[in-house]
Design a protein around this nucleic acid. Structure first.
Lengths: 218, 218
DNA sequence: GAAGTCAGTGAACAAGTGTTATCCGAAACG
DNA sequence: CGTTTCGGATAACACTTGTTCACTGACTTC
């Protein structure tokens, strides 16, 4: 075994990371399906053949980027869900965290938004799987709240998916605004909070007798 | 002038349409930014140079596709908004129309979902402009309803954007499911209706005194 | 019916592309 | 300290790419 030594392995992961970083840089104005292997290695300052030492495919590079972009978010989501009790506070924290994540990891978020429905199947399914895990975690968090009494698990999961999709759509909105435009930033924040509140209120009144009757009617 | 005669103009628009159709066909597994000019003209059976007689750019072809995909939807949206009074019926019709549009215009919808955040700026902004117009129309429709009394115009527009984004996200969900899977189709339909009902209920209770206090607090 | 318009052609241009086989040199190992 | 491992370089492979130019021939116009 040689997993402890690693001056070589360190250098290898170093250029692997350089490939990922350069890829992210080039993907700011481009889709993954149009990112060339030579273009990428040229940006890194490495021979084209070197690419194959790290990834068999461009799609594989994309999947690695998905991990980098979304992998670290699971712990954050779980933390927010368990730490926060008050509904309004949870909304505010969620929007604030989304905003912060976009400003701090703009290229990653752009990559996710761009490739979520992009042309590379492997990447698309990797993103979908990650977002599904998010929805599962949110559903679990919602289930632990007293406000979820009487909710079927399926419906709760639909609600969780709505929250996740809303998070993605808010991130995309932040993305489209210029990074240094505080007015636009505030406008998007306000809109996101408003929408989350509407959804939250709808959730609370969902099991009202009159509503329940109307819902089960169709 | 020669806009009445047009045996030539007819032939021209014919191959122009062939370019658009072939483009849509090739974009099923690809992004616009990676669609080659030669690849496209080869599919149509036309020389590469002929492309320039119809579009200066690939981006221009993309913008034309946006028009083709979303242009005809405005009248549909306006019709549904004005014809339907009952809230539940409006939800059902909206979801049904979305589902029908995806099954009937699958390649167009896929194109929109794929290029909404894609790498071609002109196309991205064209889609955004079209969706903004949708939101304006929805906002106008909502404003005409009695349930919107007491809503500020800005908040109403945010709500309209939520509806439009929800429509797009539902269309994308239908897209990801196999076209001939009735179970998946029903599952997505059910989820879309549930989410729309939650939003609708939240909207109705938005101006409740207790809610209003909490909302204006922050 | 002659003159003009113009969608589409065919050829050439200079780059660009992914992928492979072979070799080099420094790190790892016994 | 010799041997093996392996990340990276080099060079060549056979294509594909966008764009331009002069040209042809059917339609339009007068």
């Amino acid at each position: 075994m040689s997993h402890t030594s690693g001056v070589r392995q360190a250098r290898k992961q170093q250029t692997r990371q350089a490939l990922l970083d350069a890829g992210l840089r080039l993907l700011e104005h481009q889709n993954l399906s149009s990112l060339g292997l030579r273009e990428l290695t040229r940006e890194v300052g490495v021979s084209p053949a070197a690419f194959y030492r790290h990834f068999p495919d461009m799609a594989d590079l994309g999947v690695a980027l998905v991990d980098e972009a979304l992998g670290s978010l699971h712990t954050v989501i779980r933390a927010v869900l368990t730490e926060t009790a008050d509904a309004d506070e949870l909304i505010d924290r969620t929007v604030a965290i989304t905003a912060a994540y976009v400003t701090e990891h703009r290229p990653h978020v752009r990559f996710i938004a761009r490739e979520r429905h992009g042309g590379v199947t492997a990447v698309r399914t990797a993103i979908a799987a990650e977002l599904d895990r998010f929805a599962d975690e949110v559903a679990a968090g919602l289930g632990a709240q007293p406000a979820s009494e009487g909710w079927p698990a399926d419906d709760l999961h639909v609600l969780a998916e709505l929250y996740v999709d809303h998070m993605v759509m808010t991130a995309a909105a932040f993305l489209e605004a210029p990074p240094d435009d505080p007015a636009a930033h505030d406008r998007i924040t306000h809109a996101a909070r408003l929408r989350l509140r509407i959804i939250s209120i709808g959730r609370l009144h969902w099991l009202d007798p009159a509503v329940r009757q109307a819902a089960t009617r169709g």
